[in-house]
Simulated scan of single mutants.
Amino acid sequence: MNIRVYYEDTDVGGVVYHSNYLNFCERARSQLFFDAGRSPILSDGHFVAKHIEADYIKSAKFGDVVEVKTALLQSRNASFTLLQEIYRDLERLFTMKIELVYINFEGNIAKIPDSDREFLATTLQ
């Protein structure tokens, strides 16, 4: 997914503020569902972040167009782990591993429904 860096994404020096890289990745994860005509909020629950490892390699700046790439690293019964990387052209700027856990609407960790697990596996190859 391509994202344009706007002034609101940057600090006073025109450099993307560190937390906005997480926002860009979140937007890309949601867009995967929207592109398939689905919602990231599933019929019986939704995903929440459990663990994040992030590396800031180089800075994106005001006006840049960056690309967020997302790949499935691991899938379990109630969670999955993604690798998300942000690039400017061919230059990697940011990388993140994120573990997302499925939570039902009662607030409990639950097994990811099979149809949603299949969607994730095919969409995040």
Rank of each mutant, 00 (worst) to 15 (best):
K58D: 08
S59F: 06
I109R: 09
Y87L: 00
P40S: 08
C25R: 02
S59M: 09
Q84D: 00
F24H: 07
Q84F: 02
V15C: 03
V68D: 00
I86A: 08
I112P: 00
G63R: 02
Y102W: 11
S115D: 10
H51T: 13
I98A: 02
D11S: 00
H51P: 06
N77L: 14
F34L: 10
D11H: 01
L42P: 05
R38M: 15
I57G: 04
G37R: 11
S39C: 04
S79F: 08
N108S: 14
L72W: 02
L82I: 07
A78Y: 08
I41M: 05
F62Y: 15
T81L: 03
T95A: 13
S59Y: 03
K50N: 11
R38K: 15
L93M: 10
L83Y: 00
A54M: 14
R92M: 15
E53N: 13
A71G: 03
E8A: 12
Y56C: 02
L100Y: 04
R92C: 14
C25M: 09
F47H: 05
D89M: 00
A54K: 12
L82G: 00
C25Q: 05
I41Y: 10
L93Q: 09
V15R: 13
R92I: 14
S30A: 13
L124F: 02
S19F: 06
V101T: 03
D11N: 06
P40G: 10
H46Q: 09
Y56V: 01
E26K: 09
S79E: 07
N20F: 05
F105G: 09
K111G: 03
Y7A: 07
G63T: 05
E8T: 09
L82H: 01
V5Q: 04
R29F: 06
Y56S: 01
A54V: 15
E8I: 08
V15Y: 07
L83T: 00
P113L: 00
G14N: 02
E85G: 11
T122R: 13
F62H: 14
V15Q: 05
I98Q: 01
G37W: 08
I98L: 05
K50I: 05
K58C: 04
V12T: 12
D64V: 03
L82W: 00
T95P: 02
V12N: 10
A28W: 01
M1A: 06
R27K: 11
D114H: 12
E91T: 14
Y6R: 13
L120T: 03
D11L: 02
N108V: 11
G107V: 13
L90G: 11
I86P: 04
S30Q: 08
S30P: 01
I86W: 07
S43V: 09
V68F: 01
G107D: 13
A28E: 02
V65L: 09
G63C: 06
S30E: 13
N77H: 14
T81W: 02
